[in-house]
């Protein structure tokens, strides 16, 4: 690691103030992407602003037809939250399958969403559930938030404060893990809210998380695994690396989508 100065603000507002003042500063949330990157000397922020003491970024509450999750909520807190389990069990399930138990104790939803790793789990949930990403400055719809590999709509100086998930009638997640890293080789989140059906795919897209319109259309007729029979995702624009080529990943998208729908429908 290169040297940096360390700051530990007590609120998101203070954090934003520091972020504006310090050049080459980076936000430290759970640190499970940033710290390994810094250890390998692949990132060299001159200042780290640790959100760990920002009490206003914690907490999970139910607000009407939404679940509001503070950005500094750990994956374990989301997974174990009675509120999330009751309102959107598919989301709790997703959180309970990120990384390993130790990672889930430190990694946060805000960090994951802001990083937009193409193999991360949360972006699929945000996109499929139509979440709203709330920052210290504005509200951004998930559809407009994830803009490319490790790219988001976040501007300089913007900090995610919470993620608002609409409560849907059905939701499910299925992930095929990269056997080595255990990140998603393909992860599919499906959600049904009234007649609105969304299928979001992570791990597979050359440009990061994306929606699969053909599957959404097929599930509109009937929200059941069978509706997906014979449906194949195109291998165009799908990632190819030493772990999986595009054809295999495209095939897995179909298999994982079915599994996610089965989970969502309790079948």
């Amino acid at each position: 690691m290169y040297a940096f100065t360390y700051h530990r603000p007590g609120s998101a507002r203070q954090a934003a103030g520091l972020l504006a003042k310090k050049e080459d500063a980076k936000i430290l949330a759970g640190g499970h992407t940033l710290l390994p990157t810094m250890k390998q000397r692949l990132a060299s922020p001159t200042a780290l602003i640790d959100l760990g003491a920002c009490g206003d970024l914690k907490g999970i509450v139910r607000k009407g037809r939404t679940v509001v999750i503070g950005a500094m909520s750990t994956h374990a807190e989301v997974a174990e939250s009675a509120i999330v389990q009751e309102a959107i069990p598919g989301l709790a399930y997703l959180a309970s399958h990120i990384g390993d138990p130790h990672v889930r104790h430190r990694g946060t939803i805000g960090g994951s969403v802001a990083n937009n790793d193409p193999a991360a789990d949360y972006p699929a949930a945000c996109l499929a559930l139509g979440a709203t990403i709330v920052t210290n400055q504005r509200k951004i719809e998930a559809d407009a938030f994830f803009t490319g590999l490790y790219e988001t709509a976040l501007e300089e100086g913007e900090i995610i404060t919470r993620v608002v998930f609409p409560v849907v009638s059905k939701a499910g997640y299925a992930k095929f893990r990269n056997p080595a890293s255990r990140y998603a080789l393909v992860g599919v989140f499906v959600a049904k809210r009234g007649s609105d059906i969304r299928v979001a795919v992570t791990g597979a897209g050359e440009g990061g998380v994306f929606r699969w319109p053909e599957a959404e259309a097929a599930l509109k007729a009937r929200f059941a695994p069978k509706s997906l029979d014979g449906l194949k995702a195109s291998a165009e624009g799908i990632n190819a690396d030493m772990h999986a080529d595009a054809d295999y990943r495209a095939h897995l998208i179909g298999v994982m989508t079915k599994q996610a729908v089965a989970q969502a429908t309790g079948k």
Binding site: L28, L35, L48, G52, H102, H105, R106
Partner: peptide, 18 residues
């Protein structure tokens, strides 16, 4: 792996100062 406030974490991925 060690426990921080009763929860298992990877001590290689946590800053001591935090």
């Amino acid at each position: 792996v060690v426990h921080v406030d009763g929860k298992a974490v990877k001590a290689c991925t946590v800053l001591a100062v935090s």
